[in-house]
Design a protein around this nucleic acid. Structure first.
Lengths: 164, 164
DNA sequence: TAATACGTTCAATATGGATTGAATATTGCG
DNA sequence: CGCAATATTCAATCCATATTGAACGTATTA
């Protein structure tokens, strides 16, 4: 491979790491994917530790995460005992799965609080309406509406757009 | 305010902090917004430092960020020297601005690398096509296509969906 | 203009979460 | 089965970055 190509490749790996780092999922994941994506031959964990100067643990964990998002897949090479991985190039599917995972995780855990709040509102409908309580009820309602709409948009549109 | 309401409010603040922390923009921003959002009266920086037990610097910085995203606005209260802030409840607009800011920031810096790569491809069209170079060219092309589509989707759809 | 009250900045520090690597589990092979 | 090679786990460590707070800047009042 020419020097220039090697250099470009190196820059892609670096940038991949910067991107994943900046979105808060760690530098190694981006580096690992970039390395595999720009390797003509399927790569092993040892290839990763050597090329990226990372630990065995990091290599193992990053590849597993990438596999879960469908960003890489394992391929069998006869006569070899190590696991070999090659990159998927359908970025739409990859991003979709990753977002589903990362954002979905977050939406789950917020609900009980809103439910508790609505339960409170329902109960307090009967009692005297002091102004502060009124205010809180308004705000909670607004928040609930937004949450519902966000959920709807998320479910119905964003995924389809990114998928293909 | 009733005990129960106070408790709910506290939980919203905590959760706000968890959310912003988990997306990598710091706990204080989420806490600050939640506190202001659930306050009937406009709040000062000192209110924030006291309620959230954070430093003056943190309060100042978080409020400024929130202001930049249109999540809070300053209101004048006659006879008061401190700045007072109240929350905007149009979450669509807030999220839109924040995403524009956070994601836009990232898209900018990625381009020169792709441009350099395409320049290389153009130049190497004439020279002998060794297999590795061929492979790299394919991968770069795929990446470029994805980047363009992502840009298009981002520009044309996502923002409009979230806006209203 | 000085004195005071408040907001902002940024170098220093604390903290959360990414990374490591030795210990452990698993897999492939004779 | 037992051995060797490879992969995974997770407590300890490290590091990026969020947070702090003293110093500085700015606005208001008398």
């Amino acid at each position: 491979m020419t020097d220039e190509l090697t250099q470009l490749r190196q820059r892609f790996i670096e940038r991949g790491g910067q991107i994943t780092q900046s979105i808060g999922i760690g530098r190694v994941i981006g580096q690992s994917f970039a390395h595999i994506y720009f390797s003509p031959e399927p790569q092993t964990l040892d290839d990763l530790t050597e090329a990226l100067q990372i630990s065995k643990g990091s290599a193992s964990m990053s590849v597993r995460q990438l596999e879960q998002w469908g960003a890489v897949r394992q391929v069998w090479i006869k006569g070899e005992r190590k696991d070999h991985y090659q990159a998927n190039d359908d970025f739409g599917r990859i991003i979709r799965r990753a977002l589903l995972d990362l954002i979905g995780r977050r939406m789950e855990t917020t609900d009980t609080l809103l439910e508790d709040s609505e339960a409170y509102i329902k109960r307090s409908k009967t009692s005297s309406p002091d102004p502060e309580s009124k205010f809180m009820q308004q705000r909670i309602k607004k928040l609930r509406h937004f949450r519902d709409r966000a959920q709807y948009i998320w479910d119905s549109s964003v995924l389809r757009l990114l998928l293909k």
